[in-house]
Design a protein around this nucleic acid. Structure first.
Lengths: 335, 335
DNA sequence: CTGTTAGCGCATTCAC
DNA sequence: GTGAATGCGCTAACAG
């Protein structure tokens, strides 16, 4: 037995158009008939077929959300906020993981295309030009997290990473640290490079010299932070403080420091980046530079929701300022 | 300019039916014509419309994955493995968060219904009977994580929580602990109750007495673990060891222990449950009972993929045995 | 305000 | 092996 709008129409004694109208909250339906239709819907436990709806209307009410790695706590928090926005505005979210893999990214974009999403929030950096074109040439509104240039239908959420890193370095400098290490993300990714360069620049601005052996590459995951720190601890002059490209890396690094028999912050101070929920619960609690995920998510959603048509709307550049959060993983350098 | 199967057909000089066939890999197409069609598809950068496909065929190639809280590290790891399976088998995944909220759960189920998913993996417990019926009465294959009973089209992945908890308690007993606390999940949820009772039973079996003031309720999140532990530390006789309902709770509890000026495991031993990635990196590394997410995800996927039709296939009961992982958060009780 | 009708893009019968 | 025609369930004109 088919379960569709037709059955509802029959039971309610109206046409399918009227059913469709009441479902979509059209004001051109008598309260009375609307009631009758609603009762029928309830009685039949009818739920409109999303696929048919999208086909008929041309709108999917779906936003794509592309992230690198759902396993990195930064992203789930972002996803959650984005979803909350979507629920609030009656939209749906299609989540796609790239696993930091360009090939997989292509797969993600294809999915978006096939589902005819109304917009895509690209919160990752494994994005090649031709894939962006594939989306934007189809007039799909896009919003990036700190990537690329603003254009027609393409917005960007610019994060002032240099300022954030600068705040971290300045704070360490205040505490007397001069020998500061840095663990970056994978350097084949642009954002990781940006933070990496931002750190070096910041060091020079503070009148400090960068020791190459204290510049280590991680992978934005715990194991990468751990291994990078282990390498760093083998260098001749051990750092008195370390900054990392994200909190997960910092947590991994802290593990390596302890394994080395050292104490935080007594022997080495550690500063993270992101301020994931976990960071307040590490031992000691992690000093970090906060990048507010809920704000990023809200801004991203609004950017898409406001740009219903990429053909006419021009993109907007939003700005997010990270702020340092001082906890207990940092302390004065030991005389 | 419309971009559809018709355009492809025209460019390739064939009918839409032939295009459809080659897309779906039908063997009733000459290699030659297929090649021609494929070239046309590539040239036009054509991607078949998923909505139309689902509508026409009646199959969505979509599996629903319902989880409680994407912010709890347990779930992203599960999601990732499930997605990997899906990619491998050419399926898609629709993720839905309940936020531990029954109302939101209803919303999730409705989404599944509307999208005509081919099956749903329900990895959470905020599931009411009538919602299950709504799904199963529509012949949608279901698989639960340790919930409910196996029926026609409904499978279950049974986790032997009691055995897992028993292993933890036994290990603590070996170390000389007798005064052991437990932090549960929210007790309005069945699985939390199961573990709660499992702990009490296990204690008795080991000949230990349960101290009510050492049985505290958390919320499966860090803050809940923290607060529960803080409450427990106020009791007259402080526990020498604590077990928790999941790792996130344990991490929160560890924070509270440190804040209280105590050392782990010197003053208090801590045992978690799940073995999330983070647990190997806490300070000290967390002893925990491992519930293999990748295995759960794979089994869940297979359960759905194998049960293409809930009308004929009977459900299967799968079993997963958690195993204790000994790290450094546990030690002998102090004389 | 309500009903009729014509697609939306594709899969899937049938014929050939 | 290929093409023409029908229908999936719904929305959106267009009448009335």
């Amino acid at each position: 037995m088919p379960m569709n709008i037709k059955e509802v129409a029959r039971l309610a004694g109206v046409s399918t158009a009227t059913v469709s109208r009441t479902i979509n909250g059209s004001d051109k339906v008598t309260t009375e008939t609307a009631e009758r239709v609603k009762r029928a819907i309830e009685q039949l436990k009818f739920y409109p077929n999303t696929n048919a709806r999208a086909l008929g209307s041309g709108k999917s009410s779906l936003y794509g959300l592309i992230i690198s790695d759902i396993t990195n706590p930064f992203f789930p928090e972002l996803v959650k906020s984005f979803e909350d926005m979507a629920v609030q505005y009656g939209q749906e979210v299609l989540i796609a993981n790239t696993n930091y893999d360009k090939h997989r990214m292509e797969h993600c974009v294809v999915r978006m295309l096939q589902r005819k999403v109304d917009g895509v929030a690209i919160m990752t950096s494994e994005m090649e030009e031709h894939l962006i074109d594939e989306l934007s040439s189809r007039k799909i509104p896009l919003v990036f997290l700190d990537m690329g240039t603003v254009q027609r239908g393409i917005s960007n959420i610019a994060v002032d990473y240099p300022a954030g890193i600068d705040a971290g370095v300045a704070y360490l400098r205040e505490l007397g640290h001069e020998h500061i290490g840095f663990i970056s993300g994978p350097l084949n990714l642009v954002p990781a490079q940006v933070r990496h360069k931002g750190f070096m620049k910041s060091m020079r601005r503070q009148g400090l010299t960068v020791d190459k052996s204290l510049m280590q590459e991680g992978n934005h995951r715990m194991d990468g932070g751990h291994d990078a720190m282990a390498r760093m601890l083998k260098s001749k002059r051990r750092p008195t403080a370390v900054m990392t490209s994200n909190d997960v890396t910092a947590i991994g690094a802290m593990g390596a420091i302890y394994e080395h028999g050292l104490k935080i912050p007594r022997d080495i101070s550690v500063v993270g980046f992101d301020d994931i929920a976990m960071s307040a619960f590490t031992q000691p609690a992690l000093t970090t530079v906060r990048l507010p995920r809920d704000e990023v998510a809200r801004v991203a959603f609004r950017a898409l929701y406001g740009t219903q048509n990429a053909a006419t709307a021009k993109g907007v550049e939003y700005r997010i300022e990270p702020k340092i959060v001082i906890r207990n993983s940092t302390g004065p350098v030991r005389g």
